[in-house]
Computed example of a mutant assay.
Amino acid sequence: MRWRDLPGWGRDALHEAWNAWLRSCERPVAPWTALCAEVRQLTLADEAARHAWVMRRLQPYRVLAADGDNRPGLLTGYYEPEFDASRVRTSTHRVPLYAPPGALAAAGNRPLWTRQQIDTDPAVQAQLPVLAWLADPLDALLLQIQGSGRLRVQEPDGRVSYVRLAFAATNGHPYQSVGRWLLQRGEIRDGTWEAIRAWAAANPQRVDELLWANPRVVFFREEPLSALDAQFGPRGAQGVALTPLRSVAVDRDAIPYGTPLWLVSSGPVARLQRLVLAQDTGSAIVGAVRADFFTGWGDGAYTLAAGLKQPLQLWALWPRSQP
């Protein structure tokens, strides 16, 4: 494609995307390895110099579905939740978050216990190392769906630790949407988290039934959250820290990690025309014209991520064979 065919090209603040690009250059893969030295050299360059370099060194290609159809794809959003937690089980904090069990390696490709087995079988629970405890089972489910989160942990000695729980593994069972489960049964009219939480508050005796409709459980690893680390998101599947509003999860079978993408999406929640980096993936991110937009952390990030479900166009910016 020609650069002028990209809607909004030339009006984006590329310096905001440069931090994400520098992160990708921490774990570069072909064909980006050779360009990373130039990306670093442009760290302090002005916008005009960055735009000129991108247009000289890269060629935009329209990303299409596998059958060549140019119909719009789908953009959704995800974020990093923040919760209060306890290092020990208390009368209020009774929902465990687990590290990967030793049985995971022995299981190989076979699924481990279901969510219901983990919640109800003491013999299974004895094999699961607990990292922290939450007060609300829906918070724990949301943390697992998002794949990572920030915790303010009350330690046994009274200190408060700030940590990040990052995705480590799963129990191998397929993800099933609890919102869809409720919708199919006519229990709610829309599949938002607000509607799910309202249903749970009105039906506390059925919350376990709701949770067990999704057999998939995510296991986490704990990471320290320094002041510097707190300025970035969790590490995505590329192995680099995600940058709010500049990192996306993609289908890695369609788009290689580290690929700069021109993203265009308009809907009731956001109008986006910007450079983003493919740095993550997810089980629900399937297809070439499909992306999950990392919105950051906190209430504003949640609101944007929860509302994003709108048409998507993508262009991959690929290195030219000659400078």
Rank of each mutant, 00 (worst) to 15 (best):
L275A: 01
N109Y: 09
W193H: 11
M55Q: 15
A30D: 13
P100S: 03
F232N: 09
R164G: 00
D253Y: 12
A103I: 13
W9C: 01
S265M: 02
A20N: 10
G233V: 00
G239M: 07
F167H: 15
P28T: 06
L128K: 15
L97A: 03
V240W: 03
R235P: 01
A227C: 05
R40S: 05
R27A: 14
E187R: 15
A52K: 14
Y78D: 00
N171Q: 07
T43Y: 06
L314Y: 07
D139V: 09
L317K: 04
R271D: 00
L182G: 01
I255E: 05
R57H: 14
L58P: 05
L314W: 11
A305W: 14
F232C: 05
T76I: 07
L141I: 01
P204F: 14
S283K: 15
L112N: 11
L112P: 06
S148I: 05
E47F: 08
G149C: 03
T33G: 06
D69L: 01
L317N: 03
A103V: 10
L22K: 09
Q273P: 03
A20I: 14
R4Q: 13
P31N: 10
D136M: 10
M1D: 13
F83W: 15
V54M: 10
W21N: 02
A291E: 06
V240Q: 06
G77V: 00
V250F: 05
R40H: 14
G300Q: 12
A45G: 07
R110P: 10
Y175L: 02
R216C: 09
L134S: 10
V163W: 12
A103W: 13
V248S: 04
R150W: 09
R221L: 08
Q59H: 14
L143A: 08
E194I: 15
D69T: 00
A107P: 07
V276W: 07
D251C: 04
W133D: 02
R110W: 11
R221E: 14
A306W: 07
S226M: 03
S247W: 05
A20G: 11
P256V: 09
